[in-house]
């Protein structure tokens, strides 16, 4: 589904990624693991179009990232994001936060997603009224409302306790079984074991 060929990235003179080659299969659950500063977040950012590589190619279902003209539309159509911090907008309800990603989504679609994530009663709640684990699930619902082909998650359990962390990874596992490609950057190797593939990033190399 996604193929990386000789991806290199450097910030000024500091080399962050060196000749990365990787192939990610459709519907797989991939965990990028590595120590802090290893380059896993940079790799995830490049994969998710948030950052551009200095050299190399990324092919997303026969489409080269370098040839995408409208990156906003591409993201909206194909990609879902989950970050370490939920980044829910506090003045919007759970439903409205989800609608941000797809304003055409029906209430039924939102309710189905919230049920899938076991937070069906929170539709009209506000982010400051719910727990950290629930917020992260809402963030996952927001990432999924567009029916993206791939969901990228950067340290999604970084702010959660072990029980909620496990719940989030189980949700990803469940989603991948339903055909959604999941790519997660995490430093937690025990959680990473739940993924189909574990890719270790060390000193900018795989």
């Amino acid at each position: 589904m996604i193929t990386l060929k000789n991806i290199c990235k450097n910030y000024d003179k500091e080399v962050v990624l060196k000749n990365i080659n990787l192939n990610i299969k459709k519907g797989s659950f991939t965990a990028l693991v590595g120590e802090s500063g290893s380059g896993k977040t940079t790799l995830l950012s490049i994969l998710s179009t948030l950052l551009k590589a200095n050299s190399g190619e990324i092919i997303f279902e026969n489409q080269n990232y370098n040839s995408i003209k409208n990156i906003d539309k591409f993201r909206q159509k194909n990609i879902g994001f989950v970050f370490q911090f939920h980044y829910l907008i506090n003045y919007l309800s759970v439903k409205e936060n989800i609608l941000l990603a797809n304003e055409k989504a029906s209430l039924e679609e939102i309710n189905n997603l919230l049920s899938l994530l076991d937070i069906s009663k929170l539709t009209n709640s506000y982010p400051n009224e719910i727990s950290g684990g629930q917020r992260q699930r809402v963030a996952i619902a927001r990432a999924l409302i567009n029916n993206p082909r791939v969901v990228f998650a950067d340290e999604p359990t970084g702010n959660l306790d072990s029980k909620n962390s496990l719940n989030v990874f189980n949700i990803f596992k469940k989603l991948s079984k339903e055909g959604v490609t999941i790519i997660v950057a995490t430093h937690d190797k025990s959680l990473a074991k739940l993924a189909d593939n574990v890719v270790e990033v060390k000193d900018g190399q795989l």
Binding site: L50, D72, K73, F74, R75, Q76, K77, I79, F81, F83, F85, Y87, I89, L100, A101, R142
Partner: peptide
Amino acid sequence: KSEFGIKRALGISM
């Protein structure tokens, strides 16, 4: 900033 950052990440146009 985080509000606009997330909107950009979600593909909401400039």
